[in-house]
């Protein structure tokens, strides 16, 4: 039977949080900076696509990393992650539909879909935090 000491597991969790935080910050910086850069006059469509590739690549690495982390977790940790994601997904869907309905009825301009990223991250973080306290 393979056993991993709890101290090592804690370090692994810390490393995971740090890497995810770095990827999140990297994504946000590359998104904001990239968008400003390609907004300048004379940037070709290919240049704009290249600019978009940086945050997209970071986001994809983040998703793949998260996926493989979930695969490595024990069954209860995986249950908590999947439950948090499911609840966060439902809450975000509700927020987006309510916001869309209000915007539509009020005749407001449509909102940048990129806003979904911080909303999802925030809602997921809140729910995951609640789960950690509930099942500590």
């Amino acid at each position: 039977m393979t056993t991993i000491p709890n101290g090592k597991k804690r370090m692994g969790k810390l490393a995971r949080y740090l890497l995810e935080a770095a990827l999140t910050i990297g994504f946000l910086i590359s998104f904001v900076a990239g968008r400003d850069l390609v907004a300048a006059e004379g940037v070709t469509t290919a240049g704009k696509l290249m600019g978009a590739l940086v945050p997209i690549s970071l986001l994809t690495i983040w998703f793949l990393y998260f996926f493989f982390q979930i695969r490595k977790m024990d069954e209860f940790e995986r249950y908590l992650e999947v439950l948090s994601l499911a609840v966060a997904g439902g809450v975000c869907m509700w927020i987006v539909i309510v916001w869309g309905t209000i915007s539509s009825f009020m005749g407001w301009q449509s909102t940048d879909i990129m806003l979904a990223a911080p909303i999802v991250a925030g809602v997921y973080g809140l729910i995951r935090g609640f789960m950690m306290v509930r099942y500590r």
Partner: peptide, 12 residues
């Protein structure tokens, strides 16, 4: 450690 799960799992 003996079951190869987290302390949190045992507690739950």
């Amino acid at each position: 450690e003996l079951l190869d799960v987290s302390r949190q799992t045992v507690n739950a």
